[in-house]
Design a protein around this nucleic acid. Structure first.
Lengths: 342, 342
DNA sequence: TTGAAAGCGATACCAA
DNA sequence: TTGGTATCGCTTTCAA
């Protein structure tokens, strides 16, 4: 095992400085209660011995909270989540909190296990992606008595706090837009997971709008694959193989849409003349494409920052709005075309 | 089930079950030393009260280590690092460890502050990106007496352990390859940061090879920008504006190369006939491009997994190779062309 | 301005 | 198979 660590404790510093450990404790925390002379001598020894406080003991002693915030996201292969995570960690870090990462791989079981473990470390709060979780997870969260922010899916009756967007509406708007453009045979390519998630909620909204508009949706859900470029590429191949009459494809996100666009281009089709392409998320890659990708803008970084801000506000006992809709914006783009006006 | 009580301790469970807390402790850890009858009664109360162990206290008591592993990477906007991180967290999670994330934003100061903080939480070990750090950081790491894996830059005399690649050689190989193809006026587009890092080491190697081959390198370092699509796009614009005679451009990574390729394409140039493009990292987007992107393959996920494995091995006192070269592979691709044979 | 003592939650150790 | 007691590093409380 990693054995003797040269860990220097408060009392060793106290011994070296010739004072009691209480005095060292007071000096280190500032706020007075000691003479300047004492302070100087203590700090000298702290430096000399390379003393680092053991925050475990501090939190354990009971009066302060830890500065851990558990943050769970599904995976890191999907840029929408890494942007959210960056927003969270950046804001938390600025205020002296640390992110304890949890990748739930889109399964409730993994999330539940992670929640149990991370709670045992007495985090100051948790930020969790999505709104669907196991009953046991929910129960643990309620009992933990710490702030919880549910992000991504806007949850109007959150466990505690929630910030995100209405994915159903976002999907619905995209569906309505494409139908409004005149598309009738529309395809969807995404990934499939065992449990409901935001992407499936968007798909529900999308189908509702498309079918309500008299068109239909052909779905291609790639099982157990990451929602990234290559999945979009081969998902499109499969979709078109089974549905040759499709004239427009909507994707789970922009990375997949780009992959799909590459596939149809490889067939010699042109976008949007031969086929329409619509992504979701307005990811960074969109900024360099020759045609503006039809998509839906979501302020991912801002969403993460807001989640962190709500957490920090709650931790400082400031008033917090428990449910924040961060909003989205449909981007018409030029990878779909208007076949008719209506 | 559980009440709305938020902190149930061992002794409360003990009281409810009518046994001592030592007995509850033994039951919870398994391994015997109690009767089946006692076990059942204790577990019943554990469930009933919704007891969750306080691992802080366990670690604090000193007999076990925490299961925190601090992991620092520069940022999440660069896919090379998210892949490494995913590899690390995946492997660590499987073995019951948690990632405490640190984003150092490419500054030694941020890394030093993060190290100080995270060490105060008594992590079981640290995995840090890069080999260049402040003297104070190095000193703290030495004193901490915990395993440290330095990743990314292969460090032949690591603080403790290291896994990565030789970035100088990687840059050198790319430079030699491009010169070998016959390119003479070669550009480089990357990002610039205050301190030396792996990308600047690659650039050093690249320049050495190119200049040694009698060609020259025109550099365009975009200050303080993320190494992603748009930076590649406008960095290329700037590079070409100042160096119209360039015939080939090497980029810090594939995302930037893709952005650059979009820019030159927008000018009506064709790749590789009018200009050669070479990236680095072999990122997922390369899998869907019509032409194989000239790049350098690095097993990012594997690198992360190896780092985690070395950490885990060290934590279980198994023998560990202290310096592992994970290797890279030049990908000739078809976005550069051979102007001459040699 | 200082210090001594109690205690946070869990575990090691020794007794019973 | 059980339980009592000391202990980890630090902070709170109370005294000097």
């Amino acid at each position: 095992m990693a054995e003797k660590t040269n860990k220097v404790s408060l009392s060793e510093v106290a011994g070296a400085a010739g004072v009691s450990k209480m005095t060292v404790s007071r000096v280190l925390r500032g706020g007075g209660g000691y003479s300047e002379q004492t302070r100087a001598r203590v700090m000298e020894k702290v430096d000399e011995l390379g003393y680092l406080p053991n925050r475990l003991a501090t939190v354990f002693a009971g009066d302060t909270q830890s500065t851990f915030i558990g943050v769970s996201i599904p995976d890191l292969g999907n840029e929408v989540f890494t942007q959210v995570l960056e927003g969270i960690d950046d804001k938390l870090g600025t205020f002296g909190y640390q992110t304890v990462l949890g990748l739930t791989q889109h399964t409730q079981k993994a999330e539940e296990d992670w929640i149990r473990t991370v709670l045992s470390w007495q985090p100051a709060g948790l930020i969790l992606t999505g709104r669907y979780r196991s009953a046991r997870a929910t129960e643990m969260l309620k009992n933990a008595g710490i702030p919880v922010v549910e992000i991504w899916d806007l949850n109007s009756s959150p466990l505690d706090m929630s910030v995100g967007i209405n994915h159903f509406d976002s999907g619905f708007d995209m569906g309505r837009y494409l139908v409004g453009c005149g598309y009738e045979k529309i395809g969807y390519v995404g990934t499939s997971h065992n449990t409901a998630n935001a992407a499936s909620t968007r798909l529900d909204g999308f189908c509702r709008a498309v079918e309500g508009g008299g068109s239909r949706v052909a779905k291609q859900l790639c099982l157990h694959d990451a929602a990234t470029y290559y999945t979009g590429f081969y998902g499109t191949e499969q979709l078109l193989a089974a549905n040759a009459d499709i004239t427009c494809i909507h994707y789970q996100n922009d990375a997949m849409a780009f992959g799909g666009m590459q596939y149809v281009t490889s067939l010699g089709m042109s976008v949007p003349d031969d086929i329409g392409i619509a992504g979701w998320g307005d990811l960074p890659i969109a900024s360099v494409l020759p045609k503006r990708l039809t998509s839906c803008h979501v302020p991912h970084l801002r969403l993460g920052q807001s989640a962190a801000e709500m957490m920090l506000a709650r931790l400082s006992d400031e008033p917090v709005q428990s449910c924040v809709d961060i909003g989205f914006r449909l981007i018409p783009g030029s990878t779909v075309r208007r076949l008719k006006n209506r």
